[in-house]
């Protein structure tokens, strides 16, 4: 169990975190979703003991995280936002260096390196200099560099920045497999799709404050509406706007109509009526509310503003 209690962190020109409290369970895949500058990285740096808070405390299990408590770092793996690798060295040399900093015995370290390199598909490139790697390969290497000491908790600070979609999916699969093996993962991102795909619970952070937290469904339920229906804008649908209004509020956009269902809306009744009026099903698209919309609703801004 990771407990973050009333953490505040101030930098000279900005309050990075303001009274943040969170409880993260063991083996959870926890997401921290927020725009750039929201305080995600600061919270990660506090979680790993790289920074000290002005107020509050963080505990992992029964140990408090502090800058002085170096032992606790044996239980944490940290994947930083920027790649932290030595380009001139081979993949294996990089891993050996980081592994030795955790005082791993030579044989165990060697086994772990081979195992992890295989797991992310880099074993064949183990002796190549990192500078010859693609961005995605470097990312994967950076992730396994933080896993050599087999930590129970993995902190991933936007680990897919600058990564191509294929490598991103490979990273997601790898992180999901780690979580399935029992590792607690805390994952920061400003991509709501990543948070929705990976995380069992998500906290939304903005201006250093947690503004909402829960499972994806719980968060979506915080919106005052549920599904919306996107209606193609054509002669037929424009003629039947009055019919659509019977089921809720219709908002006309440049290229489509948006139907926000009213009270008592039933999908089956709606489509029966649509069919009766001669409109085609393919003109209608059921749209599930997203965390982006929740963020917009809560802050008045988009996640990537």
């Amino acid at each position: 169990m990771i407990s973050i209690r009333h953490i505040s962190k101030q930098f000279p020109s900005v309050t990075a975190l303001d009274d943040v409290s969170l409880e993260i369970g063991e083996k959870e895949f926890f997401g921290l979703l927020g725009p750039n500058g929201a305080g995600k990285t600061t919270l990660m740096n506090l979680l790993v003991g790289y920074l000290s808070p002005e107020k509050g405390s963080i505990t992992i299990g029964d140990q408090e995280v502090t800058r002085e408590n170096l032992d606790i770092r044996n239980t944490i793996g940290f994947v930083p936002q920027s790649l932290a690798l030595y380009d001139e060295l081979s993949a294996r040399a990089n891993l050996e260096m980081f592994g030795k900093l955790f005082n791993l015995p030579h044989k165990l370290l060697s086994e772990r390196i081979n195992e992890r390199l295989n797991a992310v598909g880099l074993y064949e490139r183990r002796n190549d200099n990192v500078k010859t790697f693609s961005g995605g390969m470097k990312r994967r290497l950076n992730i396994i560099a933080s896993l050599l000491h087999d930590p129970g908790v993995l902190l991933c600070d936007e680990p897919t920045v600058g990564v191509d979609p294929q490598s991103r999916n490979a990273i997601f699969d790898f992180l999901e497999s780690l979580n399935a093996q029992g590792k607690t993962i805390i994952y920061t991102t400003h991509y709501m799709e990543e948070a929705e795909r990976l995380c069992s619970r998500i906290a939304i952070i903005d201006h250093g404050k947690i503004i909402a937290s829960g499972t994806s469904d719980e968060l979506i339920d915080m919106l005052p509406y549920e599904e919306t229906i996107i209606v193609a804008k054509n002669d037929s649908t424009m003629e039947h706007k009055a019919v659509l209004r019977e089921f809720g509020t219709v908002i006309e956009n440049d290229d489509h109509l948006l139907l926000k269902p009213g009270t008592g809306f039933a999908l089956s009744k709606f489509f029966t009526r649509v069919e009766q009026e001669g409109m085609k099903y393919r003109w209608f698209e059921l749209h599930r509310p997203t965390l982006e919309e929740l963020f917009l609703h809560l802050t008045g801004r988009r996640l990537r503003d």
Partner: peptide, 12 residues
């Protein structure tokens, strides 16, 4: 290159 930060989050 950001490795100092990475070194500092190990037990070194």
């Amino acid at each position: 290159i950001g490795t100092l930060e990475q070194l500092m989050v190990t037990p070194i």
